[in-house]
Amino acid sequence: MPRRDYPVMSMQQPFEHTVTEHGPTVARVVRAVLGPGPDADDAWSETFLAALRAWPDLPEDTNVQAWLVRVAHRKAIDVTRGAARRAVPTDTLPERRATTGLPGSGEPDLWAAVAALPERQRLSLAYHYLGGLRHTETAELIGGTPAAVRRAAADGLRTLRQTLAPEGASR
């Protein structure tokens, strides 16, 4: 992170406020990236543990939400790699996990449609529309040009709309 060279000041607000304020956003992002389930839960916890470790040294002017979303991206990669190491061989795509009954995984059709998106569309959509990153920031995270990321996010959203609003819907 480029701001690391700045003189650092402690973040003085109780950390609980940060969990309350940004916990839901990070949950949406990791659920969109990994699918609702244990992997997303792991990524969420790891994100906030990393935030606790870094908290005293984060500069006061840090955009906390954007910072958390970038950490969540890295933690999602870590979780995916861990899951790949643990995985038994299977033909099922990892993002197509069962969601029934897990807290926060209402609307299984919607989350299944998100999981079915090509990865770049899914990430571009998650980081911008759910995580609030600018397309340029997403491009720094996942590579590619900001314009390509913007298109991927828009394409992903259109695909979702088509999947979830079939012919005959009023709009």
């Binding site: 969990v19 916990g23 839901p24 949950a27 949406r28 969109a32 839960d41 969420w44 916890s45 807290p103 926060g104 209402g106 609307e107 919607l110 998100v114 529309y129 759910l130």
Partner: peptide, 10 residues
């Protein structure tokens, strides 16, 4: 997608 979720367990 942004519907409120219960984060108690997390």
């Amino acid at each position: 997608l942004a519907a409120p979720t219960d984060l108690t367990g997390l």
